[in-house]
């Protein structure tokens, strides 16, 4: 039943409900999986094997796996580089906040001085 190119669905963990293809059989317990799931070693108890077997080489690259999945109508959404843009905005806002704080402290100091003078 377990062989290279078999279509599987992951049923446990963060990637559960996602499709993947067996790229390599490590031993009687573990296989390498790639596709919608992250490319990683997977316990065979954590996957549901489907009857469909795709024509794929052992240790095929991620691109080859994606093409094979596309041929049967499974689309894999690639991650977009959102993190970089987020980091930039955060840094900018942090600097602004710092400046605001400095101004506030300055104002407070001046107020305190005035109070002391009045006293």
């Amino acid at each position: 039943m377990i062989d290279v190119g078999r279509l599987c669905m992951k049923i446990a963990g963060r990637d559960s409900g996602k499709y993947g293809i067996i790229i390599d059989v490590i031993d009687d317990k573990f296989v390498m999986l790639d596709g919608q799931v992250r490319r990683r070693k997977v316990n065979i108890n954590h996957i549901e094997q489907l009857p469909k077997v795709l024509n794929i080489k052992k240790n095929a690259s991620h691109e080859e796996v994606l093409e094979a999945l596309k041929s049967i109508g499974i689309v894999v959404q690639e991650k977009t580089g959102k993190k970089e843009t987020k980091g930039e905005t955060k840094e900018g806002s942090k600097e602004e906040l710092k400046e605001e704080k400095r101004e506030k402290t300055k104002k407070k100091e001046s107020k305190d001085k005035k109070k002391q003078k009045n006293n």
């Binding site: 279509l7 049923i11 446990a12 559960s16 499709y19 549901e48 489907l50 009857p51 469909k52 049967i72």
Partner: peptide
């Protein structure tokens, strides 16, 4: 994980197995 905080892991597995068996593949 999907349904995290709503279903236990065993029930999730059952649901996902059904989903796989009812899929077109």
């Amino acid at each position: 994980r999907p349904y995290g905080g709503y279903l236990c892991s065993e029930c999730l597995r059952k649901i996902m197995k059904e989903k796989a068996r009812n899929s077109g593949f």
